[in-house]
Computed example of a mutant assay.
Amino acid sequence: MTNLGNGLAELLDIGAKGAIHIGLLGRGIGASLSPTMHRQEGERQGIDYHYHLIDFDALHLGNENLGDIVDLLEKVGFRGVNVTHPFKQAVLDHLNQLAPDASEIGAVNTVIFDGGQRIGHNTDCWGFAESFRLGLPDSPRKHVLQIGAGGAGAAVARALIEVGVKSLSVLDTDAIRSQALAARMQDMGYSVNALTEIGALTGFDGIVNATPIGMDKYPGTPVAPKLLNAGQWVADIIYFPRETELVRRAALIGCATLPGTGMAIFQAVKAFELFTGRVPSREEMTRSFEAAA
């Protein structure tokens, strides 16, 4: 194992036996509300539950250290980890089993350590689908544009099909990535195509941002808001800030909007159940999120 520095020293002694320790692996995750939701639900259920942020930026770690971190956390007794940008696909190389949802999507955001097995799951898909069903229940779904085909984008694309989108177009700055996502979903019988550019947004019922653009670390919008019209809906997967520039500008135009808060809450609900074997209260986890946001 390479030298990972003093920043991870606290993880080498995770305390009392029987406690549940979970990590979140990602970059620029200091504002994440996952620790709050998980810790407070663990406390509500009387579980000795600990949730650690492992921010590769703050720890000055390279992407090549991902495998070392996964090895370390399993070794010291973590129950599992959540995985966020930019590791949802890269982590696949460090697992030895995938749940059916993760296998179909090709991306993982939850890993369970179980008796020497590292099992990858994807709770993002269910999280986005549940948020969409509640937040945009009557929205048109004939043709949708999704921007972003990375790990989160793969889950969102599958969720959009699940909630009834008939035709999905995917655009990514990496054309190979969008083509690969489209091809994988076409092989499963879904109507998905990859775009290399967009000239106008008028042909789409809705637009989904599945990129990091709009986060505090990556300010801006993935498309020019002036191209939107009031008859469209706009969804984002980013939840910090709670209202991205895209969502704010779309609402001003008159678009129905879906911020990333619902996906953030519901993916955590499903992940908590995987980590603990207990059904959490989505209402309490929502209250925890709302109070901390």
Rank of each mutant, 00 (worst) to 15 (best):
M1S: 11
M1N: 10
E10I: 14
L12K: 10
G15W: 03
A16E: 08
G18D: 00
A19I: 03
A19Y: 00
G23P: 02
G23S: 08
L24R: 02
A31G: 14
L33R: 10
Q40I: 10
Q45R: 01
Q45G: 00
Q45S: 01
I47L: 02
D48G: 00
D48M: 01
Y49S: 00
H52P: 03
I54T: 08
I54V: 15
H60I: 12
H60P: 11
E64T: 11
L66H: 06
G67P: 09
D71H: 09
L72N: 06
L73M: 09
V76K: 07
V76T: 09
F78P: 00
R79Y: 03
P86E: 07
P86S: 06
F87G: 03
Q89D: 15
Q89G: 14
A90G: 10
H94Q: 07
L95M: 09
A102Q: 06
S103V: 13
A107V: 09
T110L: 04
I112G: 02
F113D: 06
G116S: 09
Q117M: 14
Q117E: 15
R118I: 07
D124K: 02
C125P: 14
S131L: 09
P140G: 07
H143L: 13
Q146I: 12
A155P: 03
R158Y: 15
A159R: 06
A159T: 05
L160M: 09
S167P: 13
V170D: 00
V170M: 03
V170Y: 02
L171N: 04
I176M: 12
R184K: 12
G189R: 02
Y190V: 11
T196D: 15
E197L: 13
E197S: 15
E197V: 13
A200K: 12
L201I: 04
G206Y: 05
I207L: 15
N209G: 08
I213D: 03
I213R: 07
I213K: 11
K217L: 15
P219Y: 08
P222F: 12
Q232F: 05
Q232V: 04
A235K: 07
F240E: 13
P241G: 07
E243H: 13
E245W: 10
R248M: 12
R249P: 08
R249I: 06
A250P: 00
L252W: 09
P259Y: 08
G262W: 02
A268K: 01
A268T: 05
K270L: 07
F272T: 00
F272Q: 01
F275H: 01
T276H: 01
V279P: 07
P280T: 00
S281M: 01
M285L: 04
M285Q: 02
T286L: 12
S288G: 12
E290F: 11
A291Q: 14
A293S: 14
A293Y: 11
